[in-house]
Amino acid sequence: MAKNIIEVINLKRNFIVGSETVHALRGVSFSISAGEFVTIMGTSGSGKSTLLNLIGCLDTPSEGDYKLDGISIKQMNKDERAMLRNRKIGFVFQSYNLLPKTTAVENVELPLIYNNEVSARERKRKAIESLKAVGLADRLYHKSNQMSGGQQQRVAIARALVNEPVIVLADEATGNLDTRTSFEILSLFQELNQKEGRTIIFVTHNPELASFSSRNIVLRDGLVLEDTVNKNIASAHEALQKLPKLDD
């Protein structure tokens, strides 16, 4: 049995809005082991963003516990969580969040800047390696505003991988892309998962994506509604081939 990377134990998160308490998560439990590709789904208001923030160590739970790679984050302060994110998590956002007017290499270097153990030379070497892994070997010194949406998201993925995280967290990572590019990015994620054994959590509201992951967790009203293992994983690469060719 593979090692448990994420353990979510009866997780609750309440927000106080004015005089009311909103229960965004009402007790969620599951665990994710290394090498899984998990999609987390739910409509807006289901609590998936709250869950993502907690898994990403950006937030702390009101009740329950969460262990990332065996480390409980419940007692951690802001700085300790920042350092944990730096070493163990790679984020991919819907809107890429690249620095403007900055080259691909510099963008990818960013997480390592906050890691004193990595020298400037090593930082650059790792960034280039990471960009090659996402197929951007020929775009190393292009600035973020000179690249297409798909390319920008690839840079963002390279940035998420550069610190060799135990988990890659993608938040609607294909939300801003057209169908073709979405499949390209999805197939990149599948490749990273299947060939390199990366653990990926992909949060989305798009139910179609469930067929491409190895496991699907559905949230509703702050509780886990479904948690199913997908035995029959569809290939995003094949789906991409089936798309009608563009006449350009």
């Binding site: 990403g56 950006l58 994110r85 730096n86 956002f93 969040n97 620095l99 997480p111 906050y114 610190n163």
Partner: peptide, 16 residues
């Protein structure tokens, strides 16, 4: 603000 959010999410502390 977004840049700051990004930097924090990838591991920048308040002091950084």
């Amino acid at each position: 603000t977004r840049e700051i959010g990004l930097r924090m999410s990838i591991g920048a502390r308040g002091i950084d």
